[in-house]
């Protein structure tokens, strides 16, 4: 479409074209995914303001109160009388921190190693790929479990443990893309104009791999949240004093026959969040990366 016809477009046409261009993101998957992130961020940042009760306030007189929509404990209480809804809202904080940190560290490390590997090839490439191969030979979550088991619990350790493998998909995808990019004319042109390697990596390669990185980040965050809750469920996550969805589910196991609400709601929080991030990743992939598209 040329500029002339674009300027004569009515506002309505333009809006429809925008919608059509971004139809994957404005569909159900995209909107639900974005809403998930909004909820996660708002709950994570403002848990104190939103939660009706303090997450760790115990009241044994009110232990195992069933859910009651008229309140005060809308989703019921747990075995020591803590409010389930408030704990779920506070639990969003750990999920948010871990998902953000793991995705950030993994993408920075993975993309850097991936583009360096794909651009310079040779010995740097084989060294980086060897390291990736070794870290990838642990079954998923196994390395994280080993790290937490030996070094101990804590937010930082969980982040390190989950990043230890998560950088590899970023590295592999950006490496492959860089290898294809470096043969393209605009890179050769930049080279012949005397541009340095780091300049080319930063100015030409990096912007061209960013779309795949964004798509992968949505999936990486989903993976981080489900992994963290698995670790917390096994008692290998953050210390039990911090409310987490996985930890709440671990607590629920002893009361499974008497208090179904202890199991239902925290699990639902994990499921809906992970679902949202997976759907968003799919929408982003369909929108921006037709090559990876699953039709």
């Amino acid at each position: 479409m040329d500029n002339a016809s674009q300027t004569t477009m009515s506002l309505r046409d333009r809006w429809q074209k925008l919608r059509e261009d971004y139809r994957h993101l404005t569909g159900f998957k995209g909107i639900y995914g974005v809403l998930t992130i909004v909820f996660l961020v708002v709950f994570g940042l403002f848990a104190e303001l939103i939660a009706p009760h303090a997450p760790n306030r115990q009241d044994l007189m009110l232990a195992l109160t069933p859910p009651d929509w008229r309140g005060p404990h809308v989703l019921g209480t747990d075995h020591v009388g803590r409010d389930i809804l408030s704990r779920i809202i506070h639990g969003a904080r750990v999920s948010l921190i871990i998902a953000t940190a793991v995705a950030l560290f993994a993408s920075v490390a993975g993309v850097f190693l991936g583009i360096v590997s794909g651009y310079f090839r040779g010995r740097i490439d084989s060294a980086i790929q060897k390291v990736a191969e070794i870290f990838w030979s642990f079954p998923p979550l196994m390395l994280a479990i080993a790290i937490v088991a030996f070094i101990g619990q804590g937010l930082t350790i969980v982040i390190v443990a989950l990043t230890a493998q998560r950088w590899i998909p970023y590295c592999r995808v950006t490496r492959a893309e860089t290898m294809a990019l470096r043969e393209r004319e605009f890179i050769l042109a930049a080279r012949s104009l005397g541009a340095g390697h780091w300049f080319i990596l930063r100015q030409h390669i990096l912007p061209n791999v960013m779309l795949s990185v964004i798509v992968m980040t949505s999936f990486a965050m989903a993976n981080a949240i489900i992994s963290e809750s698995s670790l917390s469920f096994l008692g290998l996550g953050v210390p039990p004093s911090i409310p987490t969805w996985g930890g709440m589910l671990a607590d629920s196991r002893s009361y499974i026959s008497s208090a179904w609400w202890m199991a239902l709601f925290p699990g639902l929080a994990i499921f809906l969040t992970v679902l949202g991030l997976n759907l968003l990743g799919d929408a982003l992939r369909n929108q921006f990366d037709p090559k990876l598209k699953a039709h």
């Binding site: 589910l249 499974i256 199991a263 925290p266 994990i270 499921f271 997976n278």
Partner: peptide, 9 residues
């Protein structure tokens, strides 16, 4: 997206 420990419970 299903956490398997939740589905199990």
């Amino acid at each position: 997206s299903m956490p398997n420990f939740w589905l199990g419970i």
